[in-house]
């Protein structure tokens, strides 16, 4: 009897440890802006699977894209010419937890500002205006979001993205399969696991540009303003990012970078994206 009781008490112990660990969360209130000032380094959460925004270059092993260039430019604006950047590749399921637990300072990863996310993180002013669209195989019968609202249609998206919620809203009958990153979702489309892939137009145009058999259809059916996310309470860092963002727009760096990445993408409205 005593042994049994002891056993069951022991059962609780690991649970207590887990609760303790989870209870620790959000206890650090350190000022990231001041901490980073000493090392002149900002650690950015980025994407490595998203063409035009953040995609790993196989030759160099480094990620390249609009978000990456923006992160470098912002860091230099905030901490001066010889400031350094560190990049941590995140996925949609890891970026907010990593921001909350202090592993990264800020996220610049084609991330839409939404009311739900705003409850957990703070966003900068929008730096890019995207809109959700559809990617299909050329010659597909799907031409707009209306064609998706059928029972036997499967839509591919990325986990926890705004795209999933939007599809549930605009095409509730369609089945949605979710993946960890855009590379996996597009691979699934190519393997015939679904009829259309959905996410923001900028990302889809990037994929269509490199894959001739696929096209972006139906225009945009939502507004997806991208923001840079920081942890709640990091007011000073957020302020610095907003100030730097405004300066980049002012001195023409922003327009130059936008043009570098999106200037030659057919069908993409750059003016709309820049919000001008």
């Amino acid at each position: 009897m005593g042994k049994k009781l002891r056993r069951s008490l022991l059962f609780l112990l690991p649970l207590l440890i887990i609760f303790f660990l989870s209870g620790c969360s959000n206890t650090q209130e350190k000022n990231i802006y001041q901490a980073d000032k000493k090392t002149k380094t900002i650690t950015w959460g980025i994407k490595s699977d998203t063409r035009l925004f953040g995609l790993m270059n196989i030759k160099t092993g480094q990620s390249e894209g609009f978000d990456i260039d923006m992160a470098k430019a912002l860091t230099k604006k905030i901490y001066g010419k010889n400031a350094k950047v560190k990049f941590v590749t995140t996925t949609i399921t890891t970026k907010i937890p990593l921001l909350k637990n202090g592993n990264i300072d800020a996220v610049i990863a084609a991330m839409t500002i939404t009311p739900e996310r705003k409850e957990y993180v703070d966003f900068s002013t929008p730096y890019f205006n995207a809109g959700q669209s559809l990617l299909v195989k050329k010659g597909s019968s799907i031409t707009s979001i209306k064609d998706l609202n059928k029972k036997n249609i499967t839509v591919l998206a990325v986990k926890g993205s705004t795209a999933v919620a939007n599809i549930e809203k605009y095409a509730p009958k369609a089945k949605v399969l979710e993946y960890d990153d855009y590379g996996q979702a597009f691979t699934a489309l190519k393997s015939g696991q679904g009829d259309a892939m959905t996410t923001d137009n900028g990302i889809l145009y990037g994929i269509a540009k490199e894959n001739k058999g696929y096209a972006v259809v139906g225009g945009t059916f939502t507004n997806e303003p991208y923001g840079i996310a920081v942890n709640k309470g990091q007011k000073q860092l957020l302020h610095a990012i907003n100030k730097a963002l405004a300066e980049l727009k002012e001195d023409g760096t922003y327009a130059r970078l936008a043009n570098k990445w999106f200037g030659d993408v057919a069908g993409f409205n750059l003016k709309e994206a820049e919000g001008q």
């Binding site: 660990l21 989870s22 620790c24 969360s25 206890t27 650090q28 650690t43 941590v88 590749t89 890891t94 937890p97 990593l98 637990n101 202090g102 592993n103």
Partner: peptide
Amino acid sequence: TYFAIPELGIRMTP
């Protein structure tokens, strides 16, 4: 591991 340990103030790489 990736989500919990940084809570203790230690930065983790993948």
